[in-house]
Amino acid sequence: MSKVTNVNSSLAYEILLYLNSFYLGMFFVCEVAMGILKAINVSYPENALLTEAGIFCALCLVEVIRIFLGRRGNLASKKVPVFFSVVLTIPSAVGVCYFLIYQTYILRLEYIWCAVMLIFHALELAFAILFIFTVCKHQQFE
């Protein structure tokens, strides 16, 4: 049995996750608005719009879980939630990459905010790994 006795929360990681939570809200609202704009003005191939909407919903869901786990793990100095958060970064980044590269119509604005989202992911991934290492390093067993 192990017990974590030290507090190893990463401030930078927390700030990133905190900002990311706001950014996710903005991303969600703007992407929905942009989707509506595109759906009205340009024609989509069959089922493409539904597919994109589905991927987007899944992305948002994964992002919410990822940020939640990251913050919870970071504040409680638990590595398991952070580890899952890191794992969820992969589908989340793939989803963002889909909107960055493979969606039917890519607007310049989407290019920008998807890129920012990926930067968040990269930074959070780096700090999360650092955090896990830190936790492992300072772990004490009774």
């Binding site: 890519i106 607007l107 310049r108 604005l109």
Partner: peptide, 12 residues
């Protein structure tokens, strides 16, 4: 307006 340009399409 430039931001709302479609810069790439992946139409089949």
């Amino acid at each position: 307006d430039n931001l709302f340009c479609i810069i790439k399409t992946n139409l089949p």
